[in-house]
Amino acid sequence: MVSIRAENLGLAYRVRQKLTLAARDRRMVTGGRIEGEGRSRHVTALEDVSFHLSAGDRLGLVGPNGAGKTTLLKVLYGIYEPTAGRVEINGRVDALFNINLGFRREATGRRNIVLRGLINGWSQEEIETRMEEIIEFSELGDFIDLPFKAYSQGMAARLAFSVATTLEPEILLMDEWIGAGDPSFQEKARERMATLAEKAGIIVLASHNPALIEKTCNKVLELEKGHVKALRSVEDRVRSKSD
C-alpha cells in the first residue's frame, strides 16, 4: 500500500568554513535557521516534522520562503538524508523539482525523453513503449524533433510533466511546478494529477499559490522556519481563512 510516514523528522547540517581565500558564500542550500557560532555553526532546516499520508492523499506544502518546503520534498525524495527522526516511504517516487533538469539544449525532444527516462531508471523497452504517449500528451507535435533549445518555457514544462507522469509514479513530488504552460494544458495536467491520486497515488506539492493548493490538494502542511505550524485538511484551512 502506497504511504509516507514521517516521524519527528529533522535535518541539520554544519555550515562548513570552506578553505578558501575568496569572500565567504553565506547562502544556504536549504532554508531554516542558522544556529551556533564558529565551527559549531549549523543550519536547522527541518525540526520535528511528523505526518502520515496514504493512498489518494494530495498534500500541499505552504509557508514563506525558507520555511523548508523544498527541503522536505528533497528529504522525501532521498536527496537529503534526515539527521533526526525517520521517514518511511512505500511506493515508487518521482519528482518534478527543476523542469529543465536533465534536458539537453542541443538534443531533440525525442532524444531528451530517452535521456530523461534513463535518468529516471526506466528500461529501454519502457521508454519505447511510452514514447508516443509522452509526445501526444505534451502536445509538442513536430517540435518533438527539434532541439530542446528551440522550446519555450511552457513547451519545456509540458514535456517535463509528460515524462514525469507517464509512468504513473505512485508518489509524485512537485515544487512550484504548474505556472508554465497555457491554461488548457494546465487543466489537462490537473486532470492527470487527479487520475494519479485516484489510482492510489500520493502527491506532495509545494507552492505559494493558494488557489492551486486548494484546487489540487486535500491536506495542507504549513511550515515555518523548518517547523510544522499546522497540518489540516484543505476545508479547514479555507474555513479558518474565511473566519
Binding site: V29, F97, N98, L101, I119
Partner: peptide, 9 residues
C-alpha cells in the same frame, strides 16, 4: 550541481 541537488542518482 543541478543533478546532485535535483536527483537521487
Amino acid at each position: 550541481q543541478s543533478f546532485i541537488s535535483g536527483t537521487t542518482l
